[in-house]
């Protein structure tokens, strides 16, 4: 019986104070192996201090084809930006 190793997504924190960032993906039989492979594939030069791995099938992604409607609610809310508010130039530090 032949079963292929599943695909995992790899997230790496480059240093404390920064968030984990998506670095790429790899195949591994289980989580432990995924972590070790991620270390060897993505951090050969000390690129990370922490790694997360998650099986790719557990990621739910938005569909770019729906971007229009999906992100539309934020489109007309210009009052969420500081530049929406008219203030005289004399007001400093704001």
């Amino acid at each position: 019986m032949k079963k292929d190793w599943p695909l995992w997504e790899v997230f790496v924190r480059s240093k404390n104070g920064l968030e984990h960032r998506h670095f790429g993906s790899l195949h591994a039989a289980d989580a432990e192996m995924a972590l070790e492979n991620a270390r060897d594939v993505y951090t050969r030069r000390n690129e990370g201090v922490s790694i997360w791995v998650v099986e790719s099938k557990y990621i739910t992604a938005s569909n770019p084809a729906d971007n229009g409607e999906f992100f539309e609610p934020a489109q007309d809310k210009i009052y969420r930006h500081p530049t929406f508010y008219d203030l005289p130039d004399e007001v400093k530090h704001m």
Binding site: M1, K2, K3, W5, A29, D30, M33
Partner: peptide
Amino acid sequence: SWVREAAMAYA
């Protein structure tokens, strides 16, 4: 191939 299969069986 036997290594890959064994790793999967172990997992």
